[in-house]
Amino acid sequence: MFSMIKTWRALKARGVMGINQRNAEYVLQYNNRRYYPYVDDKIVTKERALIYEVNVPEMYGVISSESEIKYLPKIIGDRTEFVIKPAQGAGGDGILVIADKFDDYRYKTVSGRLITIDEIEYQISSILTGLYSLGGMRDRALIEYKVTSDPIFKSISYEGVPDIRIIVLMGYPVMAMLRLPTRQSGGKANLHQGAIGVGVDIATGTTLKGTWLNEIITRHPDTNNDVSGVALPDWDGFLELATGCYEISKLGYIGVDMVLDEEKGPLILEINARPGLNIQIANNAGLAARTYRVEKHLEELKAAGIEKESVKERVAFSKEWFDAKNTF
């Protein structure tokens, strides 16, 4: 009993955020439920991002009912690469990534498996029934641009596309993590399925140590290359994209998932209103310590009569205060 209390006090002293604190003090306090549809539906998120002129993967089309599945060939056109995903899916389930066209009737998935048009249509039908959606509700299928991962990740990722998660509080980036697919995760950047979470220094965009299956690691288990010390290109671009998602979502506490495309640069994939806490392990730092600093800054701005800072000012604040070397 005393050991548990001692551990709890030690974690609290380091500013580590627990799930109860996250839910009560951040999700409930800063996220108005009326705006959840802005982030729970990827199509709505994409449409709002376009209004704010924020970069997202191009949307080729949407299928909302079984009767619209017949329009799939028209939506795909001559494209040999595309992604089909549920609008309200979670955890990467239900996503079909097509990497090439094999012949007139078959395509090749990113894993190399051949799949027929009929099988693709069946997958879309499953999406529409709500098989992959939150709460099992009927859903829509989104067909969009297939991201080509930047070559910088080739040595530290197994297939798939790595993504970057940035936690944002009231428009201020507070913590970042790079998620790297592994053989165990099936090429998906999903920590619960076996992907690696690598901390990223907010100030520099340089990767730190990683966490894999709740263990601290320094090398990728499949490529055997170091995951730390990698300088992510266009880091300020990522920070500004994530910061701008505060206005897009109208939610105060969010996790922004982004990718680095070889040609198009940083792109927003989705926004999460209930971001997980494993990011703290990857950064060896507590979220609460950083969110408290943002809240204090907001109080100081209010006292000075400043309603809100610009995106660049918010990014500058976060880079100054949340340097990996800064322990407060």
Rank of each mutant, 00 (worst) to 15 (best):
M4W: 14
R9S: 15
L11T: 06
R14C: 15
N20A: 08
R22K: 14
A24M: 14
N32L: 14
Y36E: 05
Y38K: 12
D41C: 08
I43P: 02
T45L: 04
E47G: 09
V56P: 00
P57T: 12
Y60V: 04
Y60I: 04
G61L: 05
G61M: 09
I63T: 07
S65A: 11
S65W: 08
E68F: 08
E68Q: 13
K70L: 07
Y71E: 14
G77N: 08
R79E: 06
T80S: 08
E81S: 15
K85W: 00
A87K: 02
G89S: 03
G92E: 00
G94C: 13
L96A: 05
L96W: 00
A99Y: 00
D100P: 12
F102C: 11
Y107G: 02
Y107Q: 01
K108S: 14
K108M: 11
I115H: 02
I120H: 02
I120W: 02
Q123D: 11
S125M: 10
I127H: 02
T129V: 10
S133I: 02
G136V: 01
G136S: 04
R138A: 08
R138M: 07
D139R: 03
A141K: 02
Y145E: 13
D150Q: 09
P151M: 06
K154V: 05
S157N: 14
S157D: 06
D163Y: 07
R165C: 07
Y172Q: 06
R183M: 15
R183Y: 13
Q184G: 12
Q184V: 10
Q184H: 13
H192D: 14
A195S: 12
I196Y: 02
V198K: 07
G205I: 01
T206C: 13
L208M: 14
L208E: 08
G210T: 03
I216H: 11
R219W: 01
D222C: 12
V230C: 05
A231G: 07
L232M: 14
L232E: 05
W235N: 04
W235F: 04
W235V: 07
D236C: 10
E240W: 11
L241V: 06
A242W: 02
T243V: 11
Y246C: 08
I248G: 04
I254Y: 01
G255N: 01
D257A: 02
D257P: 00
M258R: 00
M258C: 00
L260F: 03
N272R: 06
N278I: 06
I281C: 13
A282G: 14
A289I: 08
A289R: 08
R290T: 03
T291G: 01
T291F: 02
R293H: 07
V294H: 00
E295G: 10
K296Q: 13
E300G: 05
E300A: 10
E300T: 04
A304I: 03
I306M: 13
I306W: 13
S310Q: 07
E313W: 05
S318L: 01
K319W: 03
K319I: 01
K325A: 14
N326H: 10
T327S: 12
T327P: 10
